[in-house]
Amino acid sequence: MDRKTGNKLVYGIKVICVWILAAVFLAPLLLVVLNSFKTKGEIMTSAIALPGSFYLDNFITIVSKSNFVSSFLCSLFIVAVTTSLTVLVSAMAGYSLAKWKSRIAGILMVVIMSTLFVPFQVYMVAMIVVVRDLGLTGSLLGLILVYIALGMPVPIFLCRSYAVGMSKEIEEAAIIDGCSKWTMFLRIILPLMKPILATVAVLNALWVWGEFLVAFLVYGNGKPMTLPLSQRYFYGTYSNQWNLILANFLISSIPVVLFYVVMQKYIVKGITAG
């Protein structure tokens, strides 16, 4: 009896703690929602008051001025292609790094992880020159290749740890069955890695969706623009039009949030399984 009430108390405290934290985390986002329905004047008077009326002009301005629809579709296309290729490339590399008993693999792992320590700003100009030398400036292909290259390290890392934990017996059984190594990889290993690949895909897609700097430098004024590129219109040097900026954040975040909610179970599953 005693223990039960104790448990209930603990549970109660837990619930309260977690909801307070959740409220703190959500507050800034709620402010974004709130203020994106206000006029510029209303925000200046008070940032925390409720909007006077259901003011939708901010959204209309954004959709009409920033080619929202075509940018949206362009971003969708880039995310789809980049993410599927990143997943494939990292699965291959991660598996190889996990199973290849060679010194090269060890060294490569260290080098790939070192990307985490080098800020992008450091090598971005030199990278643009490479992109140009390959004749890829302003092309979607160039952008996608760079996205794969820059987005790869953590996925490779995750795939590798996952593959290390996979039992050897399955592979051996497959080889004895007469499978070629390639068939084994495609038909047995890849499906086995599904949970981690789903995780990697979700994290990668979220990153690509919101990425601005690389797109700006590599893809530049290519058309159609990606969503973050088209949003740049609102962040001009001197335009602190909070009503528009916040409304812009709101509509561009909705698809990602929905995507995350749908895919959420994979994220935890993938990392757990690894």
Binding site: V89, L97, L108, I112, L134, L145, A149, M152, I156
Partner: peptide, 13 residues
């Protein structure tokens, strides 16, 4: 298996 990752990595990093 490593090759595609390696090529991209060398080129862009």
């Amino acid at each position: 298996l490593l090759l595609p990752a390696l090529v991209l990595f060398v080129l862009f990093f």
